[in-house]
Design a protein around this nucleic acid. Sequence first.
DNA 1: TTTACTTAGTCAATTCGTTTGAATAATTCC
DNA 2: GGAATTATTCAAACGAATTGACTAAGTAAA
Lengths: 417, 417
Amino acid sequence: MLTGTNLVYTKKYNLRIVHEAIRVLGPLSRADIARHTELSVQTISNLVKELLALRLVQEGGRRTEGRGAPSTTLTLNPDGAYAIGLDLDRDHLTGVLVDLAGNVRHRVHVELDSPSPAEALALMVETTNTLVHRQKLRLNQVAGLGVGVPGPMHQAENGKGYVVNPKAFPGWHNIPLASWLQDQLGMPVYLENNAMAAAVGERWYGAGRQIDTFFYIYFGSGLGGGLVMHGQPYEGFTGNAGEIGYLPTILAGDATTRETGDPPHVGLHFNMPRLYETLRRDGTPVNTLEDLDGLLDARHPALLEWMDDASDHLTGLVLAIEYLLDPEAICFGGRLSSAIVGELMDRVARQLPARRIGGKVTAPRHFLATAGVDAAALGVATLPIYEIFAPAPQVLLKQRRSPGNGDPGVHRPVTSL
Amino acid sequence: MLTGTNLVYTKKYNLRIVHEAIRVLGPLSRADIARHTELSVQTISNLVKELLALRLVQEGGRRTEGRGAPSTTLTLNPDGAYAIGLDLDRDHLTGVLVDLAGNVRHRVHVELDSPSPAEALALMVETTNTLVHRQKLRLNQVAGLGVGVPGPMHQAENGKGYVVNPKAFPGWHNIPLASWLQDQLGMPVYLENNAMAAAVGERWYGAGRQIDTFFYIYFGSGLGGGLVMHGQPYEGFTGNAGEIGYLPTILAGDATTRETGDPPHVGLHFNMPRLYETLRRDGTPVNTLEDLDGLLDARHPALLEWMDDASDHLTGLVLAIEYLLDPEAICFGGRLSSAIVGELMDRVARQLPARRIGGKVTAPRHFLATAGVDAAALGVATLPIYEIFAPAPQVLLKQRRSPGNGDPGVHRPVTSL
DNA sequence: TTTACTTAGTCAATTCGTTTGAATAATTCC
DNA sequence: GGAATTATTCAAACGAATTGACTAAGTAAA
């Protein structure tokens, strides 16, 4: 990115910064924003005027604090924008319609069993239309559609667009999900692995608002991870950073496990279908994540045994993240219930001190994700909103006009801000 | 960082972008730069005029290619700036004076044996003065001094400035090396762990110029790592990202090793003093890194055994980096000779395919660092230059005027560009 | 109650870096 | 030799943030 910048980009960025300041720190007065952004009050006044005209922010009552004239408070207009998020996995499809403030306005949930591409596509289009109509919107009033799938993703064979991991979805080889949906729905579609999406959601609406750099450990049907650095999601070169499930459990040695033919890796210890099967063999019928909650309440021995093993590996994983990435915090969330995730966190916290190398004083703090079981759906829904409103540094830089700019096909719309 | 920007910052950034374009892609004409940066020729012409006046770039001959008027070529002026780098470890101090083009103009090397803080400080001041006088410069003509130490670093107890890891330097508890030197020498001092510094050097002068995101595996007296993402060094929240030596070798289980009292971690397998001792017990007198080269030529069994063990762990480490960070490339370098590092890389490359989880198609490429044994010294020398010239996004953003801006004490000078 | 002071916000003029358009020079192609 | 092409500069225009003057609306002190 050796491109320069000019005053047009300056303004775009400042508009986003004002929006972001109100979003994160609001309600705020124009003078407050000026102080936070180091811009002049006059500039803020002009930018706020534009945001008001776009109906993205709204004026509240006047507030008097100390001496001087009372200030007019500004907050985001929740109805300023909508986005849709679809979280797809082999066993379910969850769809949400969220507004600019991150409120889930509508939710649709369907249980699935390894759908074919055609079935899933039809269902996703239907779900999207349902969500749009319930809010009495037209398709073009929605900022975009985010789709979450279990990682990792690969590039399509023609080099255009990402395709879903065929290992998680047998029969989905080389299906360019994003462009299919985009053609059907005529709105920008963002495909992302659900762990990363959950991280973006946490960054935008959760505790991540205040935390610059954190790693999100995502418990889904498998184990995933997402990384936010300096407020920006970090995707990696091939778009698969944070794929913690593939980390080897033993750093040296290449012994492949008899069972899967793959080298021993962390993911095996967090494979939910595998856990269900173990529990079933043990005489306990389990099919869904909700069933696990009941077992936890009953302190079921086999479940507790799994949790011991899982937290043991999780501790090592946390250490790897600490030493390699040194984040400010580590976030735990996903589709497992808060009760189970919380217990895992407790166990990790107990083990961790003894397993750190001596002399380390500061360590990243751990926190439970705020979004709950729909973290991924909410997360992918924030992708279009993030794209339009986030004050990312690249907003400031001129875009290459030339073709072949490296971005492989996932739609990036002309941003409105 | 919720600060805005204005046209003054725009210009600063564009100046750096022009400089960077010439540095990386040069020699370039004004029109070439305009095409690369997407700025207008007029703008480039103005900015180049300033860089010429600052003597940071120089005009070369005119070059005619195809039809049209011939263009004036622009290159960096090597004498436009100088910087000094000092690489300190328990066993040595290496100092280099480099120019803007990355040429090592002078080099000083001293063997040490766990110096006291006072001794080391005196020696570092002396070395700096020697290097400055050899080039017939005055202290204030040097852009700054970079100091590399083995990581990790900690914050000083008063919260101001980083201090050297007391584990690597017994008796160095809570010594604020950077501010001491800054007071003595009156130039900006940048303290950094040598692995990260080597990565910055590689990014600036080596193969990293073309690679946006890479991980640098540094073989020093121990094992270190540095991370460059989107062209920017990533430090982590406490400044200790990339501390790969501390990664647990076994993800689950908290068995501490009898020997050190610490949990088993990768660093133990790359501890040079420990290797020397093993070899000595084996009847082979070894004291320095150069001795190891001789043993490699002789295919010494004990050394080869170490290399097998080391590469075995290195492979696991590479996998962890691949899956967690998904970089474009991984760079191998440090103070071990290229011959040894090269052999380690060969062994890793042989083991790696069998140990990846099935289905992974693309993988980061591996390359040997370009800088050789002085990588760290050259790397720290680039820190002041990087600070002044690198087109980092934060250059575009207004700085907070208020005190307590979070930057803990390491001197950040007013940049000239 | 009056007066002084403080703070929020707007209007108008200024500043400054990039862009645009015109002009000039140097070279190749026909 | 003339037309086309490319590099570079000069001068004017554009558009963003800034600055300074001003109004409005409150608190604090006399």
